[in-house]
Design a protein around this nucleic acid. Structure first.
Length: 900
RNA sequence: GGGCGGGUAGCUCAGUUGGUUAGAGCAACUGGUUUACACCCAGUAGGUCGCAGGUUCGAGUCCUGUCCCGCCCACCA
């Protein structure tokens, strides 16, 4: 038996603990079953649970629980990410409270602090996820900084280095002057800025008194200029190409060159070349063999190469001062306001500085195969459109700067022989364990980009590359994984890189891969991209706006079940989601309603075997089975089939809506109500059957309350989570004693009766008589319809709150409503004739419009000639129905007319 | 500059190869303690489907153009 009222707080933790106790989530390798694996997108150890996690993990849990219901061998691998730069910042902030920097405590002590921080806070988010009910196999928990994971990361580096994909080089990279590290292109976000475009005069060396003017937004880099470039065919500057000009600050002769990369229509068409601080300039410099002079330091301040006047000055201060200097010296032609795009560091939120720097790079492996895998559908993106984004990125891919000047991260496994030139590869040692004579070497100080370790998440979590570990984890059985659920914002950061990693690392050769080989190596078969959760007016949720609800508060208030189903119901397929707490409240209401429907059932007595589907079916006695019972069972089967179709397409919110409508409208509002009139064993068995199927269908979405009801209602020994789900067709076989040939007919019949009841309710509501019990009704129907009405007369009387529902032979002079089954007249005892005439008149008018429309269509020769038969037939039926209806109304109407 | 997504009831969204009178939930309004549930029940109202053309017997759905909103990518300094 279940308790009177539903309170999620009490029961949720109870069941989660029991599930864990009974090891329900642990993977099992069963050769006779198909494997189904999901990798959790590892949340950052620094993260706290937000709505995005809730959505993400709810979807994963739904998929996982459904896979269990379908007898798959399920493995959901949980884990966390060490969150490189993010955790480093947290620890540095704590140090800052004591007025210390990481350099004060030193590398080892700093790493200890970071580890301690993670031990203390790192698993909070996992505990929060448990509150949500996620059914991960916790015995497989991974952390990207686990010692074994750490080794895999290094092994990957070594392997790719060995294959020539990783190299060290001096390139122009994105430098963050606040975090003091290099960043990848993906970590730079472009922002519109109000800038000033300075037009600066450079005097021609060979022609004193003649100038070439360049336009720049970055005058503070003039000291690093090594040339001025123009478009080769630019007629304005033909005479200047090959000459020289004087750099206006730190006066020096620099060449005037021609390069196709210059846009002649921008500014003056002349471009100052500063290879150390601009990407285009760098490339031009390379083409022309120019040196690069870096005038900005890693902390964002100008260095000694900028000259004594500006050295030590912040780059933005220097910009202003250089501007003033140029003006004072008559070198500034003009300045104008200008809006341009500037790259910002994602984390520190300051403009990045393009800087020439020695870093480690990865030339991505298997780029073409990665494209192919998705194009050929070996990996299926949902929604499909993300394929384009993915392909476009791969088409324009550039080498990945993987080294970070941080301490918290996987340290690059490269050692340099002490006292030798680091630029010479023969002085390098690259291995996981380091050189055997460490005293003669010093290790590279840098660590790897966090995303480097994330890229091998599907491999490392399953034990790769260690044979023993792979066997223990069941690599061959569980890889490739089935579904990846993530946000489209990390399609480059993570998804694409995982695909390339899998393709590359699961083989050793670099030869072209066959389709079969690709299928074997891909890390997952489906990628489901969720929408991004926004607030109710479409803004991104953020801490600073304070528009993000605390998921734990929501769970507290509405229960994890309510939050889960509420969120899913508002999540259209792959579209952004406008969060509304209202929906979450509705989620809880659904749980409550489910609960209460069981309370209704239990008031009917708990006799009857419910321990299995077969047992319930046995209790159904065909001789007492009525049309209503058959109809609701038929609807259940239809609902199950449609639900399955939607779920197969990952259309969660639509699937839920179908289920919701069946449960609430068909089962509760109709079937429960009419079954109150007859309480025999067959009816209770039908209830047990429907409730049982509802629990199974709802369970992946609302696991806690369904488990409570399952156990409380005595549905079996096993946990609901262990029970298999029949398909609609399978259930149909189990119900083979029912005459399914008539099912469609039954459903149709019940629909007609419902139509009648609804129409009459509306009629009486219009007369303000909704709750009066003394209203009499009369009906006029043809023999076939009368048979139906007779069959349901008891239900109709009950639902219409009336004692009188009698047959009549003629149109009565009473308020009336006409439905497919016939005409219903309402005897109110007294009646405002004028009011009723007006009402009927309006209804007639509307019918006339419909009839006219229909007739027109059916008289259209083209329509008759070209439209398919069933459409024409449908139109004919509709017309006939409306004409009949009109005739009935007309009869009453004319009677009223004759009276007044 | 290129690409993607969206514009349907006051709000959030469905609408599946074009086909009967465009749907749901919420909000609004009216009425209701009928032996599961007021976290409920019953009912009412509300839409020229962004705009303009076109294809078609028939367009919310297909095509073209156009206007808004959002996102992603891009080396105009």
């Amino acid at each position: 038996m279940i308790t009177v009222s539903y309170s999620p707080g009490n029961l949720e933790w109870k069941w989660y603990a029991k599930w864990l106790e009974n090891d329900l989530f642990r993977r099992k390798i069963s050769p006779d079953k198909t494997a189904y694996t999901i990798l959790i997108p590892p949340p950052n150890v620094t993260g706290i649970l937000h709505m995005g996690h809730i959505l993400n993990n709810t979807i994963q849990d739904v998929l996982i629980r459904r896979a269990r219901q379908k007898n798959r061998s399920v493995f959901w691998i949980p884990g966390t990410d060490h969150a490189g730069i993010s955790l480093q910042i947290k620890v540095e902030k704590e140090l800052a409270k004591e007025n210390k920097t990481r350099h004060d405590v030193g590398r080892e002590a700093f790493l200890d602090l970071a580890r301690k921080w993670r031990e203390k806070h790192g698993n909070i988010i996992l505990d929060q996820l448990k509150k949500l009910g996620v059914s991960c196999d916790w015995s497989a928990l991974k952390y990207t900084f686990d010692p074994d994971y750490y080794r895999v990361v290094l092994a990957t580096f070594v392997e790719w280095y060995r294959r020539g994909y990783i190299y060290r080089g001096s390139r122009l990279i994105n430098w963050c002057p606040v975090s003091m590290t290099a960043l990848s292109d993906e970590e730079v976000i472009m922002r519109e800025q109000n800038s000033i475009l300075y037009y600066v005069k450079y005097e021609i060396v060979e022609k004193p008194g003649t100038f070439i003017t360049v336009a720049t937004t970055r005058p503070e880099t003039i000291m690093g200029d090594v040339a001025v470039a123009v478009y080769p065919a630019d007629e304005r500057y033909q005479d200047f190409i090959g000459l020289h000009c004087w750099r206006p600050i730190l006066r020096e002769s620099i060449p005037i060159i021609a390069d196709e990369a210059v846009l002649k229509d921008f500014g003056t068409g002349a471009l100052k070349i500063t290879p150390a601080h601009d990407e285009v300039d760098f490339e031009i410099g390379q083409r022309h063999g120019l040196a690069a002079i870096g005038v900005i330091d890693k902390n964002g301040k100008l260095n000694h190469l900028a000259g004594p006047e500006f050295a030590g000055m912040d780059r933005f201060e220097a910009r202003k001062r250089v501007g003033e200097y140029l003006k004072e010296n008559g070198l500034l032609v003009k300045e104008e306001n200008y809006v341009n795009n500037v790259g910002f560091s994602e984390r520190a939120n300051v403009p990045v500085e393009p800087m020439l720097s020695e870093q480690w790079f990865l030339k991505y492996p298997c780029v073409e195969e990665a494209k192919w895998a998705v194009q050929r559908g070996f990996i299926c993106f949902r929604p499909e459109r993300w394929e384009k984004t993915y392909t476009h990125w791969l088409d324009n891919i550039k080498d990945w700067c993987i080294s970070r000047q941080l301490w918290w991260g996987h340290r690059i496994p490269v050692w340099y022989r002490k006292g030798t030139d680091r630029n010479e590869p023969q002085n390098w040692h690259v291995s996981v364990d380091g050189p055997e004579d460490p005293e003669n070497w010093e290790q590279d100080e840098d660590v790897l980009d966090t995303w480097f370790s994330s890229a091998i998440w599907p491999l490392a979590t399953l034990g790769w590359p260690d044979g023993g570990a792979m066997e223990e984890m069941g690599f061959d059985y569980f890889y490739p994984t089935a579904d990846l659920v993530t946000g489209p914002d990390i399609i480059f950061f993570w998804v694409a890189r995982m695909i390339m990693s899998g393709l590359s690392l699961l083989g050793d050769g670099e030869k072209a891969l066959s389709d079969d080989e690709i299928r074997r190596r891909i890390p997952f078969r489906n990628v489901y991209f969720t929408g991004i959760i926004r607030d109710s007016i479409g803004r991104k949720m953020s801490k600073s706006l304070g528009n993000s609800p605390d998921p734990l508060d929501l769970i507290e208030q509405y229960g994890a079940d309510g939050v889960r189903i509420g969120l899913l119901s508002m999540a259209p397929n792959g579209q952004d989601i406008l969060f509304s707490e209202d929906r979450v409240a509705q989620g809880r209401k659904l749980c409550t309603k489910l609960w209460n429907s069981f309370r209704f059932r239990q008031q009917g007595g708990m006799e009857g075997d419910r321990s299995s589907l077969a047992a319930i079916v046995r209790r159904i006695d065909s001789s007492t089975l009525e049309v209503d019972d058959g109809a609701i069972l038929g609807k259940l089967l239809g609902t199950m089939n449609e639900f399955e179709r939607m779920m197969a397409d990952y259309e969660f919110s639509r699937a839920l809506q179908i289920l919701h409508t069946f449960f609430w409208s068909d089962y509760c509002d109709w079937y429960i109500e009419i079954s109150k009139m007859r309480t025999n064993e067959t009816v209770w068995a039908v209830h047990d059957l429907i409730l049982r199927q509802l629990l199974l269908l709802f369970h992946p979405f609302i696991p806690f309350v369904t488990e409570e009801l399952w156990q409380g209602h005595g549905y079996g020994e096993k946990f609901l989570g262990e029970e298999l789900l029949e398909s609609g067709d399978e259930l149909r076989c189990d119900l083979s004693r029912i005459d399914f040939g008539k099912m469609a007919e039954w459903i149709e019949e019940v629909e007609r009766v419902r139509e009648l009841v609804v129409a009459v309710r509306a009629l009486r509501a219009q007369f303000g008589l909704a709750s009066r019990r003394d209203v009499r009704f009369y009906f006029k129907a043809d023999p076939l319809a009368k048979e139906i009405i007779d069959r349901h007369r008891r239900d109709i009387k009950y639902l219409l709150l009336t004692q009188f529902f009698d047959e009549t032979a003629e149109a009565l002079q009473l308020p009336t409503t006409v439905v497919a089954l016939g005409s219903i007249y309402m005897d109110t005892g007294s009646l405002d004739m004028v009011e009723e005439k007006g009402r009927l008149g309006r209804e007639l008018e509307q019918l006339d419009r419909l009839i006219e429309m229909n007739q027109k269509k059916l008289q259209d020769k083209d329509f008759l000639a070209r439209a398919p038969q069933e459409i024409i037939g449908g139109a004919r039926d509709l017309l006939a129905e409306n004409i009949a209806k009109r005739k009935e109304l007309e009869a009453v109407f004319s009677k009223l007319s004759s009276v007044s």
